[in-house]
């Protein structure tokens, strides 16, 4: 039972971090209807840029704002160069464009900083929490706990941003109907710029946390891909969906790895979330929190 709890908590904590990546997708999808496949590449880019800057002698506190600036610029450029010309295209076209963007951003990151694995030290040690270890005999990573704390704060802030601020309200209007939003004078492209910048910020936080935990390397992009099953579970448009989906994926993949993995040769973490999401889709295509769409002709 203790062991089960330990695995479950570990899974939920990494689930929070999946949710953080997934949030980046949801933000952009809600505001512009683009499913931004490159969100994972942006996470990688952010982590690699920070680590690269730190390695070249800067302090972390200088590297962070610089990376933030880079992410905002990247986001704005993407909006301007890639998405604006493709406005009103079929969603699949946009999706494929972001796959192209993924390759471009991954290539760019490695062209600037090289393809070597880098480490990133945020000053939080990845050791089991002593208090829990002594009192409950459970090993729960201190790093994971703090990381998910940060993620939780960020998610809350974004939720408030979306529901309470003027920009948030405008964004929701845009998400509902571009044309209508334009017609009542919402500055659409200005808003999209903001969204891409915020998505860049989310990618930066996710990149820092994942990079510090697993090392800054190309495999980060695969971690980011895990956000896709999270989104399938939670629905592409729902912030709470992303969080719940993240928790479910995080917990179930760890439990599956520990309890089913040994019987089938291990390594099932790589595909389990996808298959889970797929089976889930067969039952409920609109996701946990998505709306059922009545198709009209």
């Amino acid at each position: 039972m203790q062991f089960f709890l330990e695995v479950l908590i570990g899974g939920l904590l990494s689930g929070v971090m999946y949710a953080l990546v997934a949030l980046g997708y949801v933000l952009i999808y809600k505001a512009s209807g683009v499913f931004n496949f490159a969100q994972g590449a942006m996470v990688f880019f952010a982590a690699l840029t920070t680590a690269g800057l730190v390695d070249s002698g800067l302090s972390l506190w200088l590297a962070l704002p610089l990376t933030m600036v880079a992410m905002v610029v990247l986001g704005l450029l993407t909006e301007k160069i890639v998405l604006r010309p493709l406005v009103a295209q079929h969603e699949i076209t946009l999706f494929m464009a972001t796959i192209g963007l993924t390759f471009f951003v991954e290539g760019l990151a490695q062209a600037i900083w090289g393809a070597n694995v880098r480490s990133l030290d945020l000053g939080i040690e990845d050791v089991p929490l002593e208090w829990l270890l002594e009192n409950a005999n459970m090993a729960v990573s201190q790093f994971d706990l703090i990381a998910s704390g940060i993620a939780a704060v960020l998610v809350t802030l974004l939720a408030i941003f979306f529901s309470k601020t003027k920009i948030g309200r405008a964004l929701r209007a845009v998400a509902d109907d571009h044309q209508a939003a334009l017609s009542i004078g919402i500055p659409l492209q200005h808003l999209w710029g903001i969204v891409w910048a915020v998505a860049g910020f989310v990618a930066l936080v996710a990149g820092l946390l994942w990079g510090a935990r697993n090392g800054v390397q190309f495999a980060l992009t695969f971690v980011a891909l895990k956000a896709l099953p999270v989104l399938i579970l939670g629905g592409f448009t729902s912030v709470p969906g992303a969080i719940v989906g993240g928790l479910i994926i995080g917990a179930s993949e760890k439990l599956a790895e520990v309890y089913i993995g040994p019987h089938v040769g291990g390594g099932i973490e790589g595909w389990f979330p996808y298959v889970l999401a797929l089976l889930f889709l067969l039952v409920r295509p609109e996701g946990l929190f998505g709306e059922r769409i009545i198709r009209r002709i």
């Binding site: 160069i81 796959i99 471009f104 951003v105 290539g107 760019l108 062209a111």
Partner: peptide, 12 residues
């Protein structure tokens, strides 16, 4: 890396 960038850029 440049190959990745060229691929991605061309797709877009």
């Amino acid at each position: 890396s440049i190959e990745l960038m060229v691929f991605g850029g061309l797709i877009i």
